[in-house]
Design a protein around this nucleic acid. Structure first.
Length: 227
DNA sequence: TACCAGGAGAAAA
DNA sequence: TTTTCTCATGGT
C-alpha cells in the first residue's frame, strides 16, 4: 500500500529540513506515558503546563499519582484541557501500571501483548497506545496521528480515511521494524506540521517547498497549502 | 469572534 | 456498524 522508497525519500526530505528531533519531550518513560494521555487533542504547550504543575507538586511518579485524589489531580492538569476526563484517564493508566507490576514487568512482554493490554485501559486508544509503545518502550510501532494522515493525503499517497491499524501496518511493512527510524519519522512529521511555511505564508503560492519529495523515478505533487 | 490543537469513548442513528 | 456528540484550556 505504501512504497518503501517513497517513504524513505519523504523521511530524507524531512530530516534534511529539520534535523534530529530527540523525541519524546520527556525525562522518563513514565512521563512519556502521562504526556501521551495529556496531549490527546491538545496543544503540547498546554501539556507542558500540566506536567510542570505535577512536577512542582512532586506528583510526577506512580506512588503519588496512585494516592492523589482525582479532583486534586484534575486541578493540577487543568491547563491541558478536558481536565476532569484526563484526570480519570491518568488514574486508569496508573492503576493498570500498578496491576501489571510496573515498567520492568511490562518491558518483557511481546509488543502485541503489551499493545492489547494498553488498549484495555479506558482512555488509551490506538494512537496513545502507540505513542507509549514507541517512545516509552522502544517498540517498532508506527504512530498514526492527524498530521500523518494530512501529510500523506496531501501527497496523494492515501485517501485519509483509512483504518488506523491498516495504515500503521502499511508503514511498518514498508519500512521494516526499526524503532529508531519510527521514533524520528513521527517526530519529524509533527515538526513539519508545526512549520509555518514561508513560501505559502508570504506569497499567493499554494505550495510548500519543503514538501516536494523526489525519488529516482517519480516526483510528488507539491502539498496543498495548509487550511 | 471563531477556530484549532500530537484523541477517545459513549450515545445516537 | 457507522456517525455524531462530548470533553475544555490556551493560543492565534
Amino acid at each position: 500500500m505504501l512504497d518503501r522508497n517513497i517513504l524513505l525519500a519523504l523521511y530524507a526530505r524531512l530530516s534534511e529540513s529539520y534535523g534530529p528531533q530527540h523525541w519524546w519531550p520527556a525525562q522518563t518513560p513514565f512521563e512519556v506515558m502521562l504526556g501521551a494521555i495529556l496531549t490527546q487533542n491538545t496543544a503540547w504547550k498546554n501539556v507542558e503546563r500540566a506536567v510542570d504543575n505535577l512536577r512542582e507538586a512532586s506528583s510526577l511518579n506512580l506512588p503519588m499519582l496512585l494516592q492523589l485524589d482525582v479532583n486534586v489531580l484534575a486541578e493540577l492538569i487543568r491547563p491541558s484541557g478536558y481536565y476532569k476526563l484526563k484526570a480519570q484517564r491518568l488514574k486508569n493508566l496508573c492503576a493498570w501500571l500498578e496491576k501489571m507490576g510496573g515498567m520492568e514487568k511490562l518491558s518483557v512482554l511481546q509488543t502485541t501483548e503489551l499493545r492489547d493490554s494498553l488498549l484495555s485501559v479506558n482512555g488509551v486508544g490506538p494512537e496513545t497506545a502507540d505513542d507509549i509503545l514507541l517512545y516509552a518502550f522502544d517498540r517498532p510501532v508506527f504512530v498514526i496521528d492527524t498530521y500523518t494522515r494530512r501529510l500523506l493525503q496531501r501527497l496523494n499517497l492515501i485517501t485519509g480515511d483509512e483504518d488506523y491499524d491498516l495504515l500503521r501496518a502499511a508503514f511498518e511493512s514498508a519500512l521494516g521494524a526499526d524503532y529508531r527510524l519510527f521514533n524520528e519519522y513521527h517526530a519529524l512529521i509533527v515538526r513539519h506540521a508545526k512549520q509555518k511555511c514561508s513560501l505559502a505564508e508570504n506569497s499567493s503560492a499554494d505550495t510548500c517547498n519543503h514538501c516536494y519529495v523526489e525519488t529516482g523515478n517519480s516526483v510528488f505533487k507539491p502539498l496543498e497549502k495548509a487550511r
